[in-house]
Amino acid sequence: MVLAVKAENLKIGYEDEEIVWAVKGVSFKVEVAEIFCLVGESGCGKSTTGNAIVGILPPYSITDGVLRVFGKTVIEGNKRDYTGVRGRVVSYVPQNPGSSLNPYLTVEEQFYYVLNSVYGWGRRKALEEAAKYLKMVDLDPGRVMDYYPHELSGGMQQRTAIALALSTGAKIIVADEPTSALDAHLRLGLIRLLTRLRDTIKLTLIFITHDLLSAGKICDKIAIMYSGRILELGPSGKILTEPLHPYTEMLVDAVPILGVLKPLKAYGGEPPPPNVEVKGCLFLDRCPKKFEKCYQSHPSPEEVHERIVECWRYV
């Protein structure tokens, strides 16, 4: 079976005075119709990884390793080729739907522009397709089509952005923090919508978030990223209930849960800045369970209990 996304030792850097590596070698597989989460703090490289899958890395970025999307190699070494993939196979739903839709165009025009530039369709064909996808996300095409983005509510904007992403026939959607700007009940609606799309049209979802709990609610698999590496990767239920890596433990401890008044554990410290060469484990500074080995080098990924963990305690 073809994998939706496969990354092998993928590295992504940005060219500054010297190369700053945002992603320092990650490997993962995403199966078709799977919901995969990249979880981490700001600056850990999760958005960069997402951008690499969609093909919207800036021209001054530098890559290494291999990335395949539905069997097509899109990144190999420093060569990138997204023809036939970007937009048609993978699509992107940004964090803030309000600022991602063009404020000068009605919803109808937005769909026409996208479908016309990707497939060269005429207005009638484009709008027929648009109506189909708007219905899929529970919007009434007759009502929404003539609206400007600011006339829609936050949840409707978000759903319009999803319909727009789907309308090109995309099989994979990369969603960058889609729920962080929403209230609880809108978030619930969005989660239900996305899981339904996964079941009905076999959509593969790559979900980028910093909220471990909402990730656990939606996703089949979670990858915990830190400072450009995946520290722990595995099925979401297991990661939340029996975290192996100290960093995952720390994230689980830090999340407030409604109805459970446990003391919130706040671990101090910050991830190492991306332009600094770190000797030893990347998580060393904040790790409460470090020992001699951790000071020498960053551990390589090991398979433990159906999970992949990068920690010297499991080598």
Partner: peptide, 11 residues
């Protein structure tokens, strides 16, 4: 804020 920093700020 991120969850880990959120816990710090709450405390």
């Amino acid at each position: 804020l991120d969850v880990s920093i959120q816990a710090q700020v709450i405390n």
